[in-house]
Design a protein around this nucleic acid. Structure first.
Length: 431
RNA sequence: UCCCCGGUAGCUCAAUCGGCAGAGCGGGUGGCUGUUAACCACUAGGUUGCAGGUUCAAGUCCUGCCCGGGGAGCCA
């Protein structure tokens, strides 16, 4: 398929006549010369229209055309230091597709509420385009990483009969004459797939009906979840670290321009190489207790505690061996210290918080059954899950990486809502 | 679910002690042959979130409601 000229590759067309289809990003004029800034989704380029070079109608179109009008321009690409980006198009012909009505989003600052209400238009702005491209690059690098390392993509169902972890709130869905739920994790299914294929991963949307109202939460978000047979906790953490390094390296290689548009400080990202720091829950508790004496062993880290810990690191870091009481029923109990689980979380630096949660899965039938009973979970729905421990049980584990949190950290974006095209929040489902 | 902050022009905000509702941007008109969120001049634009109350007088004070933002818990 031959590609038409696009603005990101405009340098290849220097001295040549091109046709660009797109939208008017901005315009300026100075008497007898117009500067039209045109965007086509791949970039923005300045077009010049001189009164002496074009017919009267073309020149007149410039004064009529409004911001975000759709149009087609034809002209010759020239190198010019005065143009933003170093190239411009000397326009000879303009064809209007549609004159846009007064565009709601101005070139000045806007409040978040207003922008969220106009998310469908906000997506056109420079920063939002850059974030979307980085997100796509992160997705691509994740898929490449697993595909290269012998993992099979086995996607888990979206509609599930019950909770994976029993605790978190689920979105109910009418399913013919019964009720099912939107998935909150593909993990249990991944474990079945791991027994069939060895190394697997799923990558799709997940849903949490938690009434969280913070910049770190969406009700609908994307998660990649690998699950590996015959691995141990060390191997699992190593896999998580390699994944993080691989994502960051790829974005630095392929999306440097977008990171610059976002004014991301690259020194933080360029340091992301193995070995990455790891500390045990025991050690983390000691750190926290220095500044928060009320913190008890077996507590989960709150926002303030997490800040205390993360100030110690300027790289992504791992905390491992959490108390059994803080983790889900399926986490494997440490055979040497029964109060600990073989679990770990990875945190992004710079205050971005948890991006990965995972661990080894309980592979002993009796222990798992006991945990299900202890948690008061309905035993019937886990029959098939227990089967995995009846028929060739095997040491295995996995983790989930939150896509939006990872993208927010890499982009240096404050709020998760900008890392997905159409975010779903507790009080926001439109557009 | 709880705590905090806010709602004034299309947008972002100002309005002193309760005393004539304003600016910038955006829109419109005109000017300028190299602009960079261009600039300059003129111009139009208001149920001050809603309902009630206090007062000679309410954007401002009081009560209730609605909407938005930020944070906590929980988590990726």
């Amino acid at each position: 398929m031959s590609k038409p000229p696009t603005i990101d590759r405009i340098a290849e067309y220097q001295g040549k006549r091109v046709v660009i289809r797109g939208w008017l990003y901005n315009k300026r004029h100075s008497g007898k010369i117009w500067f039209l800034l045109i965007r086509d989704g791949t970039g923005i380029i300045q077009g010049t229209v001189s009164k002496k070079d074009v017919d009267e109608e073309t020149f007149e179109i410039c004064s009529r055309v409004t911001m975000e009008s759709s149009l087609q321009i034809e002209g010759v690409v020239r190198r010019d230091e005065r143009a933003p980006g170093g190239y411009e198009i000397q326009i000879e012909r303009i064809e209007i597709v549609q004159i846009a009505r007064e565009y709601p989003i101005a070139k000045k600052e806007h409040g978040v509420g207003f922008l969220m209400a106009h998310r469908h238009l906000w997506l056109r702005s420079k920063k939002q385009v850059a974030i979307a491209r980085i997100r796509a690059e992160v997705v691509r690098s994740i898929r490449d990483f697993f595909d290269r390392n012998g993992f099979l993509l086995v996607d888990a169902p979206i509609l599930t009969p019950t909770s994976v972890e029993g605790t978190t709130t689920l979105f109910p869905v009418e399913y013919f004459d019964r009720k099912v739920y939107l998935t909150q994790s593909g993990q249990l299914y991944n474990e079945a797939a791991a027994a069939a294929f060895g190394r697997v991963y799923c990558f799709g949307p997940t849903f949490r009906a938690e009434k969280s109202k913070t910049r770190r939460h969406l009700t609908e978000f994307w998660m990649v979840e690998p699950e590996v047979a015959f691995i141990d906790l060390d191997g699992l953490i190593e896999l998580a670290e390699e994944l993080i390094v691989s994502i960051v390296t790829r974005v630095l290689e392929e999306r440097r321009r977008e990171l610059e548009i976002l004014e991301r400080d690259l020194t933080h990202l360029e340091k992301v190489k193995r070995p990455l720091p790891r500390i045990s829950y025991d050690e983390a508790v000691k750190l926290v207790q220095q500044q928060n004496p009320d913190f008890k062993w077996s507590d989960d880290f709150g926002g303030r505690d997490m800040t205390i810990i993360s100030e110690q690191f300027d790289l992504p870091f791992t905390i491992h061996h959490f108390p059994v009481s803080t983790k889900a029923f399926y986490m494997k109990v440490d055979r040497k210290r029964a109060e600990l689980s073989e679990s770990f979380d990875c945190y992004a630096p710079e205050g971005y918080g948890e991006i990965i949660g995972g661990g080894m899965r309980e592979d002993d039938y009796d222990r798992l059954l006991k945990r299900i009973e202890e948690e008061g979970l309905p035993k019937g729905v886990y029959d098939w899950y227990l089967d995995l421990r009846r028929y060739g049980s095997f040491p295995h584990g996995g983790f989930g990486l939150g896509l939006e949190r990872t993208v927010a950290w890499i982009c240096g974006i404050h709020h998760l809502r900008e890392t997905i095209a159409f975010p779903r929040l507790i009080d926001h489902v439109s557009p």
